[in-house]
Write a protein that binds this DNA or RNA. Structure first.
Length: 244
DNA sequence: ACCTCCCTGGCC
DNA sequence: GGCCAGGGAGGT
């Protein structure tokens, strides 16, 4: 999981005997700030988890990175698929990291409709693809993209530049309410149980999903069958009857 | 806009 | 055994 660290030895060297001074998050990147201007970056990928346990206790399977604290606890990064990654960066590395080019956080710092309209203006790509583009808006993944589009009653294939001002406002409103609902429910634990809350509980947003993973089931809004299309190599679940 | 790759695991 | 999976980088 430290494969993106330019000098692999830097990961431990930059953390050992250093104090944690704060935490942060932008989009899907987690930040643990370390004394000496070091940023410990964590991205969970598709199957990663951050856990805390007691030193000496049995660790979960697929625990790849362990950082022992001075209070008897240890931070564990667990990731069966290892699409996640972590690194300890110096300020100049943070400045050039890909996440530093990401757009505003979709939850804490959503753009004004006019700002998003400017950036979508001439884009011909489907709006679904651009919702997943972290350089436009950071933090939305496949589930929340599909759920947001359903709430906004927008078809995922719509060319982004052709959205009207009203539709962009609807989309931003839908993103906000979808992310709020997702967080309130503790996130989305799917059947694979890959994502769990830090204390091991499941997130319950799966019970509120309108379209994601519901291929063939009736749309909760209009009853038409939900379909699954592939857009940019990712599954897209949507209702062709009430999303236009 | 497409492709491959990074990995493991569950399901059909 | 093939397909699918909450993500993203890199190449053409």
């Amino acid at each position: 999981m430290v494969r993106k660290q330019e000098q692999p030895g830097d990961f431990a060297a930059r953390l050992v005997e250093r104090r944690i001074v704060g935490t942060g998050r932008h989009g899907k990147h987690l930040f643990i700030h370390i004394v000496g201007d070091v940023t410990w970056v964590i991205h969970l990928g598709m199957s990663g988890r951050v856990g805390v346990g007691r030193v000496g206790d049995v660790r979960p399977p697929h625990t790849h990175v362990v950082v022992v604290l001075d209070d008897g606890n240890e931070i564990r990064l667990t990731d069966p698929r290892t699409f996640g990654h972590t690194e300890a960066l110096a300020p100049e590395e943070v400045a050039t990291a890909s996440f530093s080019a990401h757009g505003p956080d979709a939850y804490t710092d959503p753009p004004a409709p006019s700002a998003l309209a400017d950036r979508l203006g001439h884009r011909t790509a489907p709006i679904k693809a651009l919702l997943l583009d972290q350089t436009l808006l950071a933090g939305i993944g496949n589930i929340y993209a599909d759920e947001s589009l359903h709430r906004a009653r927008l078809a995922p294939h719509r060319p982004a530049g052709a959205l009207t001002r009203g539709e962009i406002e609807r989309l931003l409103e839908a993103v906000a309410t979808t992310l709020e609902a997702g967080l309130r429910a503790g996130g989305t634990t799917l059947a694979d149980m890959a994502y769990l809350l830090p204390d091991g509980r499941s997130g319950e947003f799966i019970t509120e999903l309108a379209v994601y993973g519901r291929d063939g089931e009736p749309c909760p809004r209009c009853g038409a069958p939900i379909r699954r299309d592939v857009i940019r190599q990712r599954s897209s679940f949507w209702c062709a009857s009430c999303q236009h």
